[in-house]
């Protein structure tokens, strides 16, 4: 049983359920057994491609341990869906934040950082810094 208490939760949103699920698995594998709670919210509830605020809200509630939730997204409606949910005020747990980060690299950085017990601000920063890891 991993110790998830007091850790920042991570939600991974993609237009594709397969992408979101795989990025969650990948992040867990690459984070050396990250202990922060992570949940995928990919595709629509009927299994199609798209984004579902319902699935996003469910995932955020599921990973909330009282320390905030970092939501990473792919593009387009995923960004808008999370922003709209945040604007609602009561749809997502307190301390939920949209992370400005690339999905895959950001997910790994966020999970590693959250697993150390870092606060939500540190998790956001670590994920955002993934933009600076140039590949060429």
């Amino acid at each position: 049983m991993t110790d998830e208490s007091g850790k920042v939760g991570i939600v991974l949103v993609s237009h594709s359920a397969a992408v979101a699920d795989s990025v969650a698995e990948l992040a867990k594998a690459l984070s050396g057994g990250g202990t922060a709670p992570v949940r995928a919210a990919g595709g629509t509830p009927d299994g199609g491609f798209g984004t579902s605020p319902e699935l996003i809200a469910e995932a955020a509630q599921a990973v909330d341990r009282g320390a905030g939730v970092a939501v990473l997204v792919d593009l387009g409606s995923a960004v808008l869906a999370v922003k709209a949910l945040l604007a609602e005020g009561d749809e997502l747990p307190d301390g939920t934040r949209l992370v400005d980060a690339p999905l895959v690299e950001g997910a790994v950085a966020a999970l590693v950082t959250a697993s150390t017990g870092a606060d939500v601000g540190a998790v956001l920063q670590a994920a955002s810094e993934a933009y600076d890891y140039r590949k060429v």
Binding site: T44, G48, G50, T51, S52, P53, E54, G76, S77, L80, A81, K83, A84, L85, A87, E88
Partner: peptide, 21 residues
Amino acid sequence: GRQLISKVGGASGPLYGTLLR
């Protein structure tokens, strides 16, 4: 607006939902 945000599944959901809300 709430229905549109949660049910549409594309960018138009949050956008129209926000408009009406």
